[in-house]
């Protein structure tokens, strides 16, 4: 709903400038249509977590933490560990985020990253088995610290970086020995997501908050080196051809960003 209100108060001049530059094939911040803002990833940002990373895309900052615990497996998957992804859109990150239980944007965010990590089989959940009725659970927490647009891609990036930073915990009996590890977690794949928005007839990657405000359609495509591992459409509609073209862009941007990890 805050989107709705912000739409109404967004300066018409700013919107016109944005649409005018898009019509000429560039963006108001000078980027190409298929260009991300500057990206940086800092692994090991926290000492308290078993793996962590801070990912920045432009001014957007997402902190990801990996922490292990012991849990009871799901009844239908008794030999597999449990992966739990949670997200927080912290109120300090944006005037449009409010305190309280996770809203639909927060839930959607966590579930997109979860699907990408799970589908790509980053972590072999079978390797998290301890003994009958006891498995290791992996908590992947995503904290959006600053939101200047496109926290989804920053979140996927932070998640992949935190998983590649994580160490496999030492288990004694059915307890985790805190602070002791048997080696790196070594994720088997590093999913990267690329979010594109359509404004008018133009598609562009990595939207800023202002571009998100005037978007007509949003699509997020997560890829590994060879496969699409998650897709989620936000508002709006697109054609089959637009989707396939965007998948091609996602593969290209994905492999460039993955090389930074």
């Amino acid at each position: 709903m805050s989107d709705e209100l912000k739409d109404m108060v967004m300066s018409r001049i700013k919107k016109d400038v944005m649409l005018g530059t898009l019509a000429k094939g560039t963006r108001y911040d000078g980027r190409q249509l298929d260009e991300f803002r500057p990206i940086s990833v800092q692994k090991g940002a926290l000492k308290s977590a078993d793996g962590s990373a801070l990912a920045c895309i432009g001014g957007t900052k997402v902190l990801a933490s990996v922490k292990f615990d012991v849990a009871t497996p799901f009844a239908d998957r008794p030999t597999e560990g449990v992966l739990i992804t949670n997200s927080e859109l912290l109120p300090l990150a944006s005037p449009s985020f409010e305190p309280g239980p996770p809203d639909e944007n927060s839930v959607e965010f966590a579930r997109i990253v979860d699907r990408a990590v799970r589908s790509a089989e980053c972590v072999d959940l079978k390797s998290l088995f301890i003994k009958e009725g006891k498995v290791i659970s992996l908590f992947l927490d995503l904290y959006v610290l600053d939101h200047t647009g496109n926290f989804i891609d920053a979140g996927t990036l932070a998640a992949s970086a935190a998983l590649s930073d994580a160490k496999f915990p030492k288990v004694e009996g059915d307890k985790i020995v805190r602070g002791e590890y048997v080696g790196p977690l070594n994720p088997r794949a590093l999913p990267i997501s690329t979010t594109l928005v359509k404004i008018g007839k133009t598609w562009l990657v990595d939207p800023t908050r202002e571009e998100e405000m005037v978007q007509d359609c949003r699509i997020t495509i997560a890829t590994t080196e060879s496969h699409v591992c998650a897709i989620q459409k936000g508002k709006g509609s697109l054609t089959k051809q637009e989707l396939l073209d965007n998948i091609d862009i996602a593969f290209k941007r994905g492999s460039e960003i993955r090389a930074m990890l």
Binding site: R115, R118, S119, A120, I219, T224, S226, H227, V228, C229, A230, I231, Q232, K233, S237, L238, T239, K240, L243, L244, I247, D248, F251
Partner: peptide, 13 residues
């Protein structure tokens, strides 16, 4: 027009 698309699992283009 595509009005909803979601996807999980692994698929090639």
């Amino acid at each position: 027009d595509i009005l909803l698309i979601q996807m999980d699992g692994m698929l090639t283009r």
